[in-house]
Design a protein around this nucleic acid. Structure first.
Lengths: 195, 195, 195, 195
DNA sequence: TATGAATGAGCGTTCATTCAT
DNA sequence: CATGAATGAACGCTCATTCAT
């Protein structure tokens, strides 16, 4: 019934916020987040600067939104059982999915997220982290992955490496397919955690 | 005899440049390179802003100095034969040395280096890259490392992962010993490239 | 009804821009445009530096505004038929009008305009140029001016000389009445283009 | 006997000053005087900045040197009797010579000279002014030029116009031959001062 | 909700000039 | 005569944020 209650005004507000969000997202494809100004975003979204600040507390705020949205949309409902594969293949699938969405989001938001001063949502607090842990847990239970590392350790281990891959992709300015490179490297890495 | 000819003035000049360099280095320990201003550096070095620019062409210039100095000092004359170990142990030694100097230099210069727009000395152009390649070559020749990857591929593979480690250390704001983590992770990674 | 709709805020904004403009104009009376700083202008206009840049894109921008305003206001709607005189007298009237407004604007803006590097609105692109050409055309048609020069040539010829007059006035630092000198010289110059 | 007395040192000093002068002259061909720095001049002359200031009191100083040198070399010893022509043709010759040397000197020094704040050597104080006056005097005596203007007035009149020509040539960035334009315009102007 | 005018601290860089050596 | 290290005030411009309307 809640939806029904949405007044026209309320709907408009949601749309406006979405417009701002989309404008920011679009702009960030082509330049670093630091180089995108509020004015620019507002202009592209066809709203005033004041409106921007009505919907987002600060520049930081919209960045956080982007980052978390990525995480939530992709991994909040991640459930290993939903996938046909398991073990190594599921792991690769997971990282490919991550690679794909990072590709879509563009490197700039990732760049920024990785190197912000101040409170950055660290991967350990993200849904994706939880998802990865589930895969590992299952893998270890099935004796596919070694048990010489704890779940936590292995999660961290893999994330650190995945970050290295994304970083390299960023530095080389998207010079190659992130997905391909991810698959190639991760296949190799898996060798080090096999049972 | 040339060194003997260094006049007092010339010596003073060298000292001044060094002072500026040191001041910059010290400041960068505590905040990001972007947040360090020329005025700040100059004040700490007890010289004028003009002097800063007399010795360094730009802000970019002093950053490049720092970065290249690290690379040159550590790895220009790197020769696997100089070390008692070989194969896996030498590899670990190499990365530990890198970790140690990165720790010394501070994370901020690394942060900045990893994410500069524009011409960044990418690891492939660095002495350290050359050094690593030598280790791998020798290791492959000795049948310690697998030959299912080329030298180049393996160098890239390892660097990407090492960057992941450094990045994690940066993000968590030096929350642990980079050296320990490096050893721990790299020992594991080696499993994936063993013969 | 649109004008009536000007809110108080909008009016205030227009006033602010005008204040900045006036402040710049006032300052430029006493020193060269290069020597007038944005801070100075802003202070005199009792606004912040940011406001200056809100209304004018750059220092160049406000200069262009001044220059074009002069040209537009005086000569956009210039029509020889509007004046009782013709031929020589109209020509003199034209140059006197130019001299008068240049006097008003002050020599510094003229100085600057004459010697800017980069895109300067050259007199050939100005309304005043068009106006002069009309006078000449009419004069030639009436056999008042010689036809041994084309319209274009004569326009250029006269403008070059007029520029010489303004330049002299600038160099001697407004040491005499520009209008008087203009009349005196131009009366003489006319002898060289008579029929 | 004085020349014989010139010690080697003295000679060297003169040479050094000349080198600096030449360096400045060369640099000014390609950019405005304001954009030429003392350091640049010194480097090109292969002397130290300190040496520059030993030979020239200031940046202003070397500019004045250039300007006066032009005037002195060309017109100090100007004597109408040395030329075969007279009247109108001599006048044209005079302006052509001026145009030629201005062309050689480059527009930048002219630009700067015309628009300096502060003490500029005004044409009335220059040898070239004297030279022109002689031409006019003779021309008037020979009833070639009108006597309805005084010598002084006519000198000023012609100089003002000539300045206009140079100015136009500067503004259009040397877009045409100064000499050709000078001849063309001055031939026309002469019509206005004929007897 | 929405606007957009207004803020102002802050930054990297330049360069003529000085002066101890 | 010659050097070149050192100075430091000055400038144009940016932009996240605020707040009266």
């Amino acid at each position: 019934m809640e939806n029904a209650k949405l007044t026209k005004r309320k709907k408009q507000a949601i749309q406006t916020k979405q417009n701002i969000y989309n404008a920011a997202l679009a702009l960030i494809q082509h330049k670093s987040f630091d180089d995108v100004t509020i004015e620019e975003i507002s202009k592209k979204a066809e709203v005033s600067v004041g409106s921007f600040y009505y919907y987002f507390h600060s520049k930081e705020d919209i960045y956080l939104s982007m980052f978390k949205k990525l995480d939530e949309e992709l991994f909040r409902d991640f459930n290993p059982g939903d996938y046909p594969q398991s073990g190594e293949d599921l792991l690769i699938t997971f990282f490919l999915q991550l690679a794909r969405s990072v590709s879509d989001l563009g490197l700039n938001i990732i760049k920024y997220s990785l190197f912000k001063e101040g409170p950055v949502p660290y991967y350990k607090d993200l849904y994706m982290s939880e998802a990865l842990q589930k895969i590992i847990k299952t893998g270890q239970a099935d004796n596919v992955f070694t048990s010489s590392m704890s779940e936590d350790e292995m999660t961290e281990y893999l994330f650190i490496i995945m970050q290295g891959v994304m970083l390299d992709w960023c530095i080389t300015d998207e010079g190659y397919s992130l997905e391909e490179k991810t698959e190639q490297l991760m296949r190799r890495v898996v060798l080090s955690i096999k049972y």
